[in-house]
């Protein structure tokens, strides 16, 4: 039980645990004793779960499914007849929306890769140096920025490096440096978005990768040293291969997180910068041409098509390493 729950907690994000074989009805997934005594009544147990399933169906599956469905529907403005079409998706892949997809992918890729690398190094620095109290401070702070950042992050940066930000002014007043023209930095453009996104991407990486780093047994390093390995050889032959799937998975997670983020970008650019999530908002708020009502749904479909497979891969990678790190 303890081993399993530890493994479970460090493998965030595994919907189906290895032991949760659908065929093993008689055994609990955590390997505890079969509940033979309750067997007779079990056939009715699913009834108790119906509120949950109904809720999920009504408030999650229905809206999400509807989006994916209406991405392929179009109402003819003249006749009022609704029919299947690929034109929404096709429009969503062209023109300004193509730019939006491209921008979102670029932003997600850059902040995902940089965030993963910096976050990995930072997590290592934290894991290998701090005491318990500081670790707790840092880990909760990271959790705040990664999970609850959103809008406030935008304002932190606006206040610091925005048009009338503190640093912007200080540089201009004292050094005659203009962030925009001299340093080619624009908080409200892609460079600014990258800078701000990293402010939650790096903490996210720290959170996700810390359990993996802590799971590296000191014995592995000692055993390697014992067999004659230098520190570098240990990392190259032992540490890196163990961490690789985790790091890759975490990078995918960061990519998806950057790709899906809405609040920070909206607050920072007032919804003006072409990114898919912001464009979806613009479209469904009615700022579009007639006959393109379902364009937002098509954009949403594109997001889902990009994000879901990556998250599934992330899952599989996480599950793979869980058994090594317990």
């Amino acid at each position: 039980m303890t081993a399993q729950s530890r493994a479970g907690s460090s493998s965030e994000w595994s919907p189906a645990r290895p032991t949760a074989d659908p065929g093993q009805v008689h055994e609990l997934a955590d390997g505890s004793a079969p509940i033979v005594t309750l067997k007779r009544r079990r056939s009715y147990a699913w009834l108790g779960l119906t509120p949950f399933f109904l809720y999920i169906a009504a408030f999650f599956i229905l809206p999400t499914g509807t989006v994916l469905f209406s991405a392929f529907r179009k109402t003819d403005a003249g006749t009022g007849v609704t029919s299947f079409t690929g034109s929404n998706v096709s429009s969503a892949l062209h023109g300004v929306y193509f730019t939006g997809i491209k921008n979102s992918l670029t932003l997600a890729l850059i902040t995902g890769v940089v965030g993963a690398l910096v976050g990995l190094v930072l997590a290592w620095a934290i894991v290998s140096s701090t005491g318990n109290v500081l670790t707790r401070f840092v880990s909760t702070a990271a959790a705040v920025l990664a999970n609850f950042g959103g809008v406030p992050l935008a304002f932190l940066f606006i206040a610091t490096v925005g048009n009338s930000g503190l640093l912007t002014k200080a540089l201009a007043d004292h050094f005659h440096i203009n962030l925009n023209s001299d340093l080619h930095f624009d908080l409200y453009g892609i460079t600014g978005l990258e800078l701000v996104y990293l402010y939650f991407q790096i903490p996210l990486m720290v959170l996700v990768i810390t359990p993996a780093l802590e799971g590296l047994k000191p014995q592995w390093q000692e055993a390697a040293a014992n067999l004659g390995a230098t520190r570098w050889q240990y990392w190259r032959h032992v540490g890196a291969p163990i961490l690789a799937p985790n790091v890759l998975g975490a990078a995918l997670l960061l990519f998806c997180s950057g790709f899906s983020a809405y609040a920070t970008a909206d607050a920072l650019t007032s919804g003006a910068f072409p990114l898919i999530p912001l464009q979806i908002h613009a479209v469904i708020s009615g700022n579009v041409l007639a006959g393109m009502e379902n364009l937002g749904d098509a954009l949403a479909l594109i997001m889902v098509v990009i994000v879901v497979p990556l998250m599934v891969i992330y899952q599989l990678l996480q599950r793979r390493t869980t058994r090594w790190l317990r």
Binding site: S10, A143, A146, N147, L204, L207, T210, L253
Partner: peptide
């Protein structure tokens, strides 16, 4: 978006 880890106390450093 993801991951909330209140404490890192569960580190498996063998005593």
């Amino acid at each position: 978006m993801v991951a909330l880890t209140p404490t890192a106390g569960a580190g498996g450093l063998a005593e």
